[in-house]
């Protein structure tokens, strides 16, 4: 190579780049863990399942008042804010009418009881979740150990691709700091920060310590929760004995939330 000023500058540039690569690699390598003699384990009381699933007996819900305790239990415990501006709304569980919950299973002359019944909707924790396919950072992912569609709020870049991908409208985005919208903070559970997406987590934090999800606990038996792949689970018993439907089954996402109508 000719020794011009230009080429020497190029050489310097490339060398500087080379020197700066190692610290970057070191920084990533440090995440891999140290040899420090600690272990991480599942708790002894943790509930285990291949795929958590929920069966909702909608016949036991007659008015919005029947659903409210479930929603409140969830939203209070998980620090879900309540904003007046509908655009900024955040919800993990909410109420829909039949023809909104099941827009492609509706008919003009619907059974009256069903038409006015409040339907509880939430993240379906699909077995084949389109949101997880869409996420460019694996911030939302299908957890192998129990089938929960989880969110890693530390990793989410807020691109909202998952929200476009979800055919159930189950995801909410923090358009602003959620804290001013939370009437009473639960200091044992984190809030979210602005700019990340959130949704129902099937109460992963409770299953880990042997407890059922908040909504299930507050439902007086109207909700059942269990392992879809355990033939003896309550969920499977209910599925065996009742005709159930799921939301938008035709899309092949395989929702894990079943409705007895």
């Amino acid at each position: 190579m000719e020794r011009t000023r230009r080429n020497i500058l190029k050489l310097f540039g490339i060398s500087a780049l080379g020197v700066s690569v190692k610290p970057v690699f070191n920084a990533f390598a440090s995440e891999a863990g140290h040899l420090t003699g600690y272990r991480m384990e599942k708790g002894k009381n943790a509930l285990k399942a291949r795929q958590w699933a929920m069966v909702i007996d909608t016949r036991q819900f007659h008015s919005p008042d029947d659903l409210k305790p479930l929603i409140d239990a969830c939203h209070q415990a998980h620090n879900v804010p309540d904003f007046e501006n509908k655009n900024h709304e955040i919800k993990w569980i909410w109420e829909e009418e039949y023809h909104h919950a099941f827009p492609n299973k509706t008919t003009q002359f619907l059974n009256e009881a069903v038409e006015h019944r409040p339907f509880m909707v939430l993240c379906n924790h699909c077995e084949n979740p389109p949101c997880c396919r869409a996420c460019p950072t694996k911030a939302t992912f299908k957890r192998k150990s129990d089938g929960i569609v989880m969110m890693d709020f530390h990793r989410c870049i807020g691109c909202r691709f998952c929200m476009a991908a979800c055919p159930f409208g189950s995801r909410s985005f923090n358009f602003r700091d959620p804290r001013p919208g939370i009437p009473r903070l639960n200091r044992k559970f984190p809030t979210r920060t602005r700019g990340v997406v959130e949704k129902c987590n099937f109460c992963a934090e409770r299953l880990a310590v042997g407890k059922m999800p908040y909504c299930v606990e507050a439902s007086n038996g109207a909700l059942a929760f269990g392992d879809l792949y355990d033939p003896d689970s309550t969920v499977r018993q209910l599925l065996k004995e009742n005709y159930t439907i799921r939301r938008k089954q035709g899309l092949g996402t395989e929702p894990s939330v079943y409705y007895i109508v």
Binding site: C135, P136, T137, K138, I157, G158, R194
Partner: peptide, 17 residues
Amino acid sequence: VDLGQPMRVFNVFIYFS
């Protein structure tokens, strides 16, 4: 400018999917 957490944009490369 559309990202909610633009300072984390390099996650796209760190955790490439």
